[in-house]
Simulated assay, not measured.
Amino acid sequence: MISLEDRLPSEAVVNAVSDIEDSDVTDLPPLYGAIDTDALDALFTGDAATSVTFEYSGYTVTVEDNEVVFVQQ
């Protein structure tokens, strides 16, 4: 679990997965191959309750409106 802490959701997802894999973010496949990163970031700019789950680099990633990223294998 990672807090977004002033990061875009797309950045937080890549950072969370790179932390789990103990690798550099540049070693991961592009996130835009799994989800539209602009749409992902736009979903979390308002106050509406939102939750998005998708597959990325062998993980199930969930971004929630409380600004938390969950990554599960």
Rank of each mutant, 00 (worst) to 15 (best):
I2T: 14
I2Q: 14
I2A: 13
S3N: 12
S3P: 12
L4W: 04
L4F: 09
L4I: 05
L4T: 10
E5F: 14
E5H: 06
D6A: 07
R7F: 15
P9W: 07
P9N: 07
S10I: 06
S10P: 12
E11Y: 14
E11F: 11
E11L: 13
E11K: 15
A12E: 05
A12Q: 12
V13W: 00
V13E: 03
V14T: 14
V14P: 12
V14F: 02
N15G: 11
N15K: 10
N15F: 14
N15V: 12
N15L: 12
A16I: 08
A16V: 07
A16R: 11
V17I: 13
S18A: 13
S18G: 15
S18Y: 15
D19T: 13
I20F: 11
E21W: 12
D22G: 10
D22A: 11
D24I: 14
D24R: 14
V25R: 11
V25K: 15
T26D: 10
D27K: 05
L28Q: 08
L28C: 10
L28G: 10
L28K: 11
L28I: 14
P29R: 02
P29Y: 00
P29M: 00
P30H: 01
L31D: 03
Y32P: 01
Y32Q: 05
G33L: 04
I35K: 10
I35M: 09
T37Q: 06
T37E: 13
T37F: 02
T37A: 12
D38P: 11
D38L: 12
A39C: 07
A39D: 08
A39I: 08
L40K: 05
D41Y: 00
D41R: 04
A42Q: 13
F44N: 02
F44S: 00
T45F: 06
T45G: 00
T45E: 07
G46H: 13
G46C: 15
D47Y: 08
D47S: 15
A48C: 08
A48N: 05
A48F: 09
A49E: 11
A49T: 10
A49P: 05
A49F: 11
A49N: 12
T50S: 04
T50G: 03
T50H: 07
S51N: 03
S51A: 08
S51H: 01
S51P: 04
V52Q: 06
T53A: 09
T53G: 01
F54N: 00
F54E: 01
E55P: 04
E55S: 10
E55D: 15
E55G: 06
Y56L: 04
Y56C: 03
S57E: 15
G58N: 04
G58V: 01
Y59F: 08
Y59K: 04
Y59A: 01
Y59I: 02
Y59M: 02
V61Y: 02
V61W: 03
V61P: 03
T62N: 13
T62H: 15
V63D: 00
V63G: 00
V63I: 02
V63C: 00
E64W: 15
E64Q: 13
E64L: 07
D65W: 03
D65N: 06
E67A: 13
E67T: 09
V68A: 05
V68G: 01
V69I: 02
F70W: 08
F70C: 11
F70P: 05
F70E: 07
V71Y: 01
V71R: 00
V71C: 03
Q72W: 09
Q72V: 14
Q72G: 08
Q73N: 02
Q73F: 01
Q73M: 00
Q73I: 01
